[in-house]
């Protein structure tokens, strides 16, 4: 009977749907796994820095206190716009996003933690100050953000005492909102170098290098 074929088709559809979801799950897990290792490194670095910071409090009277705070920048690349972009792209491409959502939150919390530790270190040891570059970008496709990130990466690769961070502006995280309020940021890509705001309009590698050098960055 004809209805038999309709039933068989329903079964085949169920099998294909199940198989497709299984494949999607594997693909999505692979993508999530790719960013997971970066996030784990970042979490480790953040926790390790926190411990160093505690140790600094213990050794505050030592003459070597600032040497303690010479924190190695292990996962510098993870702090940039590139990984944030990857989050966004995988978020769009994945069907199963629960873990990615969690990783994303965890990533930004720990990145913010690292940023605070960098500020703390600069306050504690002004003689060994790092230049802190924070790039506030828009999460949605933003040509100027892609271009600015490219410039920041090119320039900072040749500098020694620079720490770069990148935070999205248009996300609903309370600490990002706090940052936005603190720097009085609007929803447009902005560069903050040692607490000074700069517009990214017409930013070139030469301009950025000049700005960094003015802030005592040691660049080639």
């Amino acid at each position: 009977m004809v209805y038999n074929q309709f039933f068989k088709a329903a079964l085949l559809t169920a099998v294909i749907v199940f198989f497709s979801f299984f494949l999607a799950y594997i693909i999505d897990s692979t993508r999530t796994g790719e960013v997971k290792s970066f996030v784990q490194d970042l979490i480790f670095e953040s926790e390790s820095n926190r411990l160093i910071s505690k140790f600094y409090l213990f050794a505050a009277n030592s003459t070597k206190k600032c040497e303690i705070l010479q924190i190695p920048k292990e996962v510098q690349t993870a702090k940039t716009y590139q990984l944030a972009l990857k989050f966004k792209e995988y978020e769009q491409a994945n069907l199963f996003n629960t873990e990615l959502e969690y990783l994303k939150k965890s990533y930004f919390v720990n990145l913010f933690d690292l940023y605070l530790l960098a500020l703390e270190k600069n306050n504690a040891c002004p003689e060994n100050k790092d230049v802190i570059v924070v790039f506030f970008y828009l999460e949605a496709a933003c040509p100027a953000c892609i271009e600015t990130d490219y410039i920041i990466r090119n320039v900072t690769a040749n500098c020694q005492n620079i720490q770069t961070f990148a935070f999205p502006l248009n996300v609903n995280y309370s600490f990002i909102k706090a940052l936005k309020n603190y720097y009085a940021l609007e929803d447009e890509p902005t560069l903050v170098i040692n607490n000074k705001k700069y517009s990214i309009t017409n930013l070139t590698e030469e301009k950025l290098l000049t700005l960094l050098k003015l802030e005592q960055a040691i660049c080639k």
Binding site: Q5, K8, A9, A10, L12
Partner: peptide
Amino acid sequence: FIVNGIIIIYIFSVYLFLFLD
């Protein structure tokens, strides 16, 4: 995409079984 995909696969499966049978 998922709903569209499921509907298309079901319709095509019906055609496939009608053809094979």
